[in-house]
């Protein structure tokens, strides 16, 4: 797999996954939607874990099974750091970026696999 594409997909999916897990929590859900929402939070939590799991795929495809996992860990940290410092200043933008990265990342992943 092309290295740049793998990096973009990995980073996008890691961010989307981290953001989904984050917004599944009461406090952060309120930051964006001003209230809690049990169904949406449950869905976000499930989607979050799934996104983080599939983010391994482009990393392993591009860097191999050993280095790919290291890259995945690095992207998880980097994505979470971006999120944690974006969220308090621009909560809506952080949520929007989650949508964009998830909607861009998942089809991108399917397209690159096909």
């Amino acid at each position: 797999m092309n290295m740049t594409l793998a990096l973009l997909l990995g980073a996008a999916l890691c961010y989307a996954g981290m953001a989904a897990l984050c917004l599944a929590m009461d406090r952060h859900h309120r930051q964006v939607w001003n209230r809690t929402g049990a169904t949406r939070q449950k869905a976000l939590r499930l989607i979050g874990w799934l996104l983080l799991a599939v983010a391994i795929w482009p990393c392993v495809r591009a860097w191999g099974s050993s280095v790919g996992v290291v890259i995945w860990f690095g992207l998880l940290s980097a994505a979470a750091l971006v999120l944690v410092f974006l969220l308090p200043y621009r909560p809506k933008a952080a949520a929007l970026l989650m949508g964009v990265t998830a909607l861009g990342g998942l089809p991108g992943l399917l397209w690159s696999a096909g």
Partner: peptide, 12 residues
């Protein structure tokens, strides 16, 4: 791991 690994190490 090439440049990607280096930048991730730099950031971390």
């Amino acid at each position: 791991g090439g440049l990607t690994a280096r930048w991730l190490y730099f950031i971390c």
